Amino acid sequence: MTAMMEHSTSIADLPAGPVEYRLEQRGEAVVVVFHGGHMRAGLTLDERVYDEADASVLAPSRPGYGRTPVTTGTTVPGFADVTADLCRHLGVERVTAAVGISAGGPTAVAFAARHPTLVERLILQSAVGPLPYPDRRSTRLLAGLMFSPGTEGATWGGMRALLRRAPDRGLRQMLSGLATLPADQVLAGLTPAQRTQLVWLFSRMRSGAGFRNDLRPREDLTGQVTQPALVIASRRDGAVSFAHAEALVAGIPRAELIESQADHHFYEFAADWPTISARMRAFLAADLKR
């Protein structure tokens, strides 16, 4: 699947409200992908691992992102239930895996916990766990200000302008919050093609009301997940600290931790991603014993 494209989406009118979603049908296996902050159903970096696994992808826009109003589901457990309703609406009777990326992690956890007869397994990649997010209170306050209804458009408008005028400078600014290493070092480790992909992605991100919704306190449902889980995390991820992965593995009884060697929040660009994606494909194909 080509990374640098925005996919077409549809709207499902459900009892809880409208939900924007993307459904790419391949094989019988279905993965439900909950993307992270500032992302929506049609916007993705790289989903080739699911293509290679011959898995269909159902990706909803979470509350406040894209064309899903923040009032549809609103809370993490509420939208997990809305997603189960979306599956019924689309005739999806079995979810091979719920996939939670970054700020989409809590929704994937809730989806698995609240709908164990529907969801077979859980994959969490750079995922927010049952800890405060962002980790520092000052960062949470700043994020709330930058992505408020009155400032969100200007924040992203300024970033798009910077990425057009000075792409490397814009990337350094973005990467400074996405890696624990110095931004210059992280940028130097990216290939020209990867830089182009990130400029494309950052230039199309929007937060809507979604990111402020992501900052709300949420219930810890990790102990209620009965399915096998794969937790993928990097110690150099500056957006979601490794402590979140440790908390997820501690809380989910059947969780396995895979440590990525990525220097930043985008694990698909790491040298060990082929190995990790192979582990993901094997996990999706495994014959589970409940």
Score class of each variant (00 low, 15 high):
Val82Arg: 00
Ala98Glu: 11
Ala80Thr: 04
Ala84Val: 05
Ala103Lys: 15
His115Ala: 03
Pro77Val: 03
Val95Met: 12
Arg114His: 06
Gly105Ala: 12
Asp81Trp: 09
Thr107Leu: 12
Ala98Gly: 07
His89Trp: 09
Phe111Pro: 00
Phe111Tyr: 03
His115Asn: 13
Glu93Val: 09
Ile101Ser: 11
His89Phe: 15
His115Phe: 04
Val82Gln: 06
Val82Leu: 03
Pro106Phe: 14
Gly105Pro: 12
Arg114Phe: 11
Asp81Met: 12
Ile101Lys: 13
Glu93Arg: 14
Asp85Ala: 15
Phe111Asn: 00
Val76Met: 04
Val92Arg: 02
Ala110Pro: 10
Thr96Lys: 13
Val92Tyr: 05
Gly78Phe: 00
Gly104Asn: 00
Asp81Ile: 10
His115Gly: 08
Thr96Pro: 08
His115Cys: 05
Gly78Pro: 00
Val109Glu: 13
Ala97Asn: 04
Phe79Gly: 03
Thr83Gly: 13
Pro77Gln: 07
Glu93Thr: 12
Gly100Val: 02
Ala84Phe: 04
Thr107Cys: 15
Ala110Asn: 09
Ala97Thr: 07
Asp81His: 05
Phe79Arg: 12
Pro106Thr: 02
Thr83Val: 13
Phe111Cys: 05
Val76Glu: 05
Val99Ser: 14
Arg114Thr: 04
Ala112Val: 02
Val95Gln: 04
Pro116Lys: 01
Val92Met: 09
Leu86Lys: 09
His89Cys: 11
Ala108Trp: 05
